[in-house]
């Protein structure tokens, strides 16, 4: 098993390298460079442009040098935990994004749990009671969930909250806890706010997961080993959970590889609508203002998050399926 994990970790290295190159290319795409923007902005706000500082920064990021050199300098910094400087906020990137990344992870993972908690039982039910009324109903609802984009759902939730309940539902914290140090009350407040983004983000993935679980389980229900187990005299529900559901879980778990990127994607856009203090809004802002190192850090870390998700699903799959472990 350790050998397996080691091999997978090793296989991740080229992926991560490719990711960093992709992200670097992305942040270099817009015309103009960061320092000229920076200088222009400083000049605009009639602050004295400290040539020494500029030169210092130019040195640090290798601006003006060929792109591969710039990339290496940037990567070198990243590997040491230095993601560069945000020119809009005029401070290092890392402290800016640290908390937001943590909350992004929290929101995404809770959305993932929600997705699984909903999709798994419904998928099983739909497969076992194929073509029942409830199966059709869930299928239809699943389609609707698939068709409503996250931001629209967010808007709808806000509309309903404002017009029917007369209150706004954005954010992850109540006003008094925003910026306050962490405390038990703040955590409880967070949990009280978390469920709306969790459902809004999670719902878009639920439909596909239900369909995957249903299809997998239908496949497994037709396999001869189910008949073997039935012929042994196992009670039906026990049999169902012990064999076909267990087997159908494998492809279900391997969906983690794409459901996580999907949820991270969804969180970015829903966060803008619901005004969540996670990666999305700041990333959008940094992209609009061409605050490239801030955007780059977000992009890189979000991508790494999903590559890690793939690794996690591989390991989970190996734990679940002896055939993969013994490969």
């Amino acid at each position: 098993m350790l050998h397996f994990i080691g091999r997978r970790l090793l296989a991740m290295v080229p992926f991560l390298l490719l990711t960093s190159v992709t992200v670097f290319t992305l942040i270099q795409l817009p015309p103009g460079d960061y320092l000229s923007n920076y200088a222009a902005q400083l000049a605009e706000s009639s602050e004295t442009v400290d040539q020494a500082t500029l030169e210092n920064l130019r040195q640090r990021y290798g601006l003006g040098q060929p792109l591969p050199v710039q990339y290496l300098k940037w990567m070198g910094g990243v590997l040491q935990g230095d993601f560069g400087q945000s020119f809009e906020w005029q401070q290092p990137v890392w402290p800016l994004i640290r908390e937001r990344l943590g909350l992004t992870l929290l929101v995404t993972l809770s959305a993932l749990l929600f997705t699984w908690a909903v999709a798994l039982p419904i998928g099983i039910y739909s497969a076992v009671r194929k073509y029942s009324l409830a199966d059709y109903l869930f299928t239809f609802l699943g389609f609707v969930g698939l068709a409503v984009p996250g931001f629209l759902l967010g808007l709808l939730v806000m509309y309903v909250a404002v017009t029917w309940f007369g209150q706004s539902v954005g954010g992850l914290f109540s006003e008094q806890y925003e910026g306050a140090p962490w405390s038990l009350d703040k955590v409880l407040d967070l949990l009280a706010h978390l469920w709306i983004p969790m459902i809004v983000i999670g719902l878009s993935g639920t439909a596909s997961l239900i369909r995957i679980m249903r299809a997998n389980l239908l496949d497994e229900l037709n396999k001869p080993y189910v008949e073997t187990a039935r012929a042994k005299g196992l009670p039906e529900w026990k049999l169902l959970l012990r064999y076909p559901v267990r087997a159908a879980l494998n492809p279900f778990v391997s969906t983690l590889g794409w459901i996580l990127p999907h949820l991270v994607s969804g969180s970015v856009i829903v966060a803008v609508v619901l005004n969540l203090p996670i990666a999305g809004p700041l990333l959008l802002q940094s992209l609009l203002t061409q605050d490239m190192y801030l955007a780059g850090a977000f992009l890189l870390l979000l991508c790494c998050l999903t590559v890690l998700g793939t690794l996690l699903s591989d390991i989970l799959l190996a734990l679940l399926d002896p055939r993969i472990r013994f490969e």
């Binding site: 396999k223 001869p224 080993y225 073997t228 005299g233 064999y243 087997a247 055939r323």
Partner: peptide, 28 residues
């Protein structure tokens, strides 16, 4: 689906199947 039939299945009357490859659960 009842208890009586289940007691007979496997207990009194047992069955073996054609496909030895797929008639056993691959995960157990």
């Amino acid at each position: 689906g009842g208890r009586q039939v289940r007691a007979i299945r496997g207990g009194e009357i047992a069955m073996i199947f054609q496909e030895p490859m797929t008639s056993l659960s691959p995960l157990h």
